[in-house]
Design a protein around this nucleic acid. Structure first.
Lengths: 252, 252
DNA sequence: CGAAGTATTGAGAAGACTCAAGCTAGGTGG
DNA sequence: CCACCTAGCTTGAGTCTTCTCAATACTTCG
């Protein structure tokens, strides 16, 4: 993968890229600039001015919210096709901090451009709203998970969520690598890292999963669903992305 | 308060009101229809088709999300000026159920009309996005609260949140009535009702609050802030509402 | 190879939950 | 108007889950 390595340092106050953020191949077939990220690199941080939306192209990121007194909570692990940066829309200042958990690549879409595009058609506006609203549901579901499920259920649900998302991307739903640390998982689930570790071990001993460090195998999906208390619903329709796989704004 | 009592029964599939949802006083000074609600009445339920946005005018509502396996989590207690119904935007089907905790009144704004209005100007579009994005932040903050704070902190934070919101509405920030049951509070905070009750009693004995049934007094705000672990930040800017106090779309 | 970050596992403590009983207040009907 | 009834609230005792602290092992990377 030999993509031009654009600006590894933060672009906190560097609108430089804005100017050439779009490869104007043709009026409505414009390709977004990509940004490569190294593992651990920050995409943006809480407090940064919001100018860009991102769509993950490859890799897994981590998004955290930091309360004004320093409490940290992981809000998600965005993967290919998922939009990142919406947390800046409401105030113009990012509330979350996003870092790459492995070498990754994202499309960079100037928000102003997206807005312009969205205003161009009712469908575009619709997509924009759905994208935002989808995040509302996601966060509410996270709160629900943390609020009502017991630790073991949360861990199972977490694994199943990853499984479904990997599957959607064409990877194996029953065997993948956890890109995040136990601490990250714990923070996402409202648990301590030791608890996460213990429960993964427990699921292993119970024969539901296989785990060795970061490599997981889901051995008994039905049992995991049962344990999680959730329905394996196919309801999880693939949400239309704000960019297609080539980094172009969808035609509408 | 002798407002016409419009349609107490659900309007699940009754677009009837859509037609007369707006009092066209003048082209851009249109007033929304109001809907009165009795205590316990449902505004809409999970699964209902999404057609309307609402803005609370008086009273306190309760919004819950129900997972596909029946778990319930309260997602908020919307009060005057706050938008309700955004949970339907992403799929066109409401994910939440909203009921009135006391006799209440809401503005009813057909979503399509709001969309049209929003498309009319960049500012309108902006406001629409901010409104949605604000909900994202809110839900993320709820997840954070449930995920990282201990029970006593959550209860304190909950009281302080109510306090701030009442203050913004011109009511006393240190003395108000809890419209929701202990069970509701527990569900919102990820706790059992007994725990909520115990902790309220504890705060009472510690002299931080006064509580008698549903009537609370916050006796030592600084101590509550300290306990909650949060900063009493004035950062909580009053978000612009999608409707002004008369139920008109803001001029833009 | 060494160092730092990450993971596992144990033992004990603390927090929150469950179950259960009694209490309170608000609304209803006699 | 009072008595009752019900939903909601409080409080206690005991249990279970999860956290904390701590020691040890593993891995990754320079």
């Amino acid at each position: 993968m030999t993509v031009t390595h654009l600006r590894r340092q933060e672009d906190r106050d560097a609108p430089a890229s804005t100017a050439r953020a779009v490869d104007v191949a043709s009026p409505n077939r414009m390709k977004c600039v990509r940004r490569c990220m190294r593992r651990g690199e920050r995409l943006y941080g809480a407090g940064d001015v919001f100018r860009m939306l991102y769509v993950v192209r490859v890799g897994v990121l981590k998004s955290c919210i930091v309360s004004n007194d320093g409490l940290i909570q992981v809000t998600g692990f965005p993967m290919a096709g998922e939009a990142v940066g919406l947390d800046g829309v409401s105030t113009g200042i990012h509330q979350n901090t996003v870092v790459a958990l492995e070498d990754a690549e994202v499309f960079v879409l100037p928000f102003a451009q997206w807005e312009r595009w969205a205003r161009g058609s009712a469908d575009g506006q619709h997509l924009m709203m759905r994208t935002l609203a989808q995040e509302i549901i996601r966060s509410q579901e996270q709160a629900l998970m943390i609020g009502v499920m017991r630790a073991e259920q949360r861990v199972a649900a977490f694994l199943l969520d990853l499984s479904a998302r990997y599957q959607r991307l064409g990877y194996s739903p029953s065997s993948f690598v956890l890109r995040m640390t136990r601490h990250d998982i714990g923070s996402f689930l409202g648990l301590k890292l030791e608890t996460v570790s213990r429960l993964l071990s427990r699921l292993h001993h119970e024969g539901l999963i296989q785990i060795q460090g970061k490599v997981v195998g889901l051995l008994d999906l039905p049992a995991l669903w049962r344990l999680s208390g959730l329905a394996p619903d196919g309801k999880r329709r693939a949400l239309d992305s704000i960019l297609n796989r080539e980094g172009e704004l969808p035609a509408m």
